[in-house]
Design a protein around this nucleic acid. Structure first.
Lengths: 345, 345
DNA sequence: CTGAAAGCGCTTACAG
DNA sequence: CTGAAAGCGCTTACAG
């Protein structure tokens, strides 16, 4: 228990924090502080003998480098920031996870910041965090393009699911999963699909629509878009009437929340899913397998998205292999109970 | 577009990063750098006139203080860390949110770190992050007590839902919600309740059990614990047989996941919830209102937990009012469809 | 292979 | 009210 206290007592030089510095080590090992720095950071740059002595002293004193002090002369903080609008969003946290993992493996710390409110709040947050990191990932951003460009001028930056010209970006590519989904619906006998679009200018919604359209054409299946809809349970419930009136036997929603909202409303109105109507979504959120019936959906490799983003950033900073452009992440169909064969009437 | 470039050109002194420093401002305003520092940080410490001149220059140059450089002499990083085992855990992210909000309001940055794997990984993460923050919140920790005590010696620290002697901690107190839940079950006519306990040495599980026990006694309702169970869907499913055999008309699960697992299994076996069996949980996770029937559950003020933790930490650091001890956060019943009147047989 | 020095961008007693 | 100086803990040319 007096461990820390003892080591403090044994070496004169200490200040506010009880932490040992390279000066303490230098003193203990009988070398110059600069030699300590080299021994600890540039293995081989110092004779094996003194390096050993220095490492021993460092261990003895429980030395931990002060990352702030190191950052000043080098300009490297070994930290990168991930800005997201909403941590609660199930789509977001797998991304966070992937990013965390990749950062941690590279010895980097990930700062996650939620910008919830307005784009103004986000701008503030970003402004505050930027000087303290080596790069930033804009996960779900509401910043205007010009602001993003401005930021990219000061620090390496990458956006997720958002295209700004001249800025590196990464997204999940819905085509594979969409094709699988349409193949699946085709097999079940569906000839007409309704797509419930997301928010009016959602980039991801149009990408999903395009992918479905392409796949439907390949099967000669009719497809049309209904919307826009808010990406929520309420959005899905509100879509019910038009979806039913459309005569489509299968409806694919912009995301799982909308799909679940639709299922709930359909059930409330006396329809049975999938017997009367097949429903599918995108994202594969946690709740998708808990509802009744469990939801058929297209899952993205979000974890891969997060880790790819980190790796890309690190590479542009000079850690790891040189950058070779960005490649979107893939998607995959998860078949569960909300899709079934077309009812014969 | 040449905005940044221009301002660089106009002031000779710049290095690797294009950012303006207090030296640039000092030069532009014709004062000493120390005066700039005072003007910007200690309003009133400098004549109104020069302060105005300095602020103008700072704006002109788009000055942003370098937080790392500031941190070195002061020892203050304006950052606090929140360590959690699993970001995906629904119980966790509301806490994150509250913490984020409170930190941000105080002008602090919150670093969130997920320690997923072993306690060893967590120890590493904490070790790496500690020197760069002003305090740490251990959200869901697997660290042994002695390790936590050791950490608390170097940096202000607070634990969540974990009691270690001598260390400040904050938890959610289940008593209010548990009382409401038992009142509710009593009204519905239940006279026997089964509690599905969580993991064997879960501190939270015992607290919930104690609270339910106390409430049940106040009504003269019989109550008993079955378990331990893993805090998952599978744990709930596995509990079904014993729960049913017990003859209890209502079962309260350690958490929502277990409750949902139980409901799914019960449904699979042909029981109807709540007609044949009432089920309730704890936490009020997002999926609770999506399942069929929607789950009656006890919700904690997790957001409050997160923000209280931050505020407590800041106070011990000297920001805000002095510390007055820690007060647990409250809980509240959310009645939905999984609880009903006892069936007459 | 290693030492001595200068510098990273800021803060803060110490003078005046 | 403001300047000049020293220092935070590290890194890195520059010498030798």
């Amino acid at each position: 228990m007096t461990d820390a206290a003892e080591s403090v007592a044994s070496s004169g030089r200490r200040r506010k924090s009880g932490a040992a510095t390279i000066y303490d080590i230098a003193e203990a090992a009988g070398v110059n502080p600069s030699t300590v720095s080299r021994a600890l950071n540039q293995p081989g740059r110092v004779s094996a003998k003194t390096e050993a002595r220095i490492r021993a002293a460092a261990d003895e004193l429980h030395f931990q480098i002060n990352p702030l002090a190191r950052a000043l002369p080098t300009g490297r903080t070994n930290t990168i920031a991930l800005i997201v609008a909403d941590i609660t969003n199930p789509v977001v946290f797998e991304t966070i996870r992937g990013a965390e993992r990749a950062a941690s493996i590279a010895g980097y710390t990930l700062v996650i910041s939620e910008s919830q409110e307005s784009g103004a709040v986000e701008a503030n947050t970003v402004e505050r965090i930027t000087p303290a990191v080596d790069g930033v990932i804009l996960g779900t951003t509401r910043l205007p393009d010009k602001e993003i460009v401005r930021l990219a001028e000061r620090k390496p930056l990458i956006t997720l699911n958002r295209e700004v010209k001249g800025i590196p970006h990464l997204a999940s590519d819905p085509s594979h999963g969409a094709q699988q989904l349409v193949d699946h619906l085709d097999e079940l006998g569906h000839r007409s699909i309704a797509f419930l679009g997301g928010p009016s200018r959602s980039w991801m919604s149009s990408r999903r629509w395009e992918a479905l359209l392409h796949a439907a054409r390949s099967h000669g299946i009719a497809i049309f878009e209904i919307g826009p809809h808010s990406p929520t349970l309420a959005g899905g419930a509100a879509a019910f009437e038009r979806a039913e009136a459309s005569g489509a036997t299968a409806v694919v929603a912009y995301n799982d929340l909308v799909a679940i909202g639709l299922i709930q409303e359909a059930t409330r109105r006396g329809l049975r899913v999938p017997d009367d109507l097949s429903v599918a979504g995108f994202d594969d959120i946690f709740a998708a397998e808990l509802i009744t019936p469990p939801l058929t959906t297209v899952r993205s490799d979000l974890r891969g998205l997060g880790s790819d983003a980190v790796r890309h950033l690190l590479r542009t900073i000079g850690v790891g292999e040189p950058v070779d452009g960005t490649a979107d992440v893939t998607t995959e169909l998860v078949v569960r109970g909300s899709t079934g064969t077309v009812r014969q009437n």
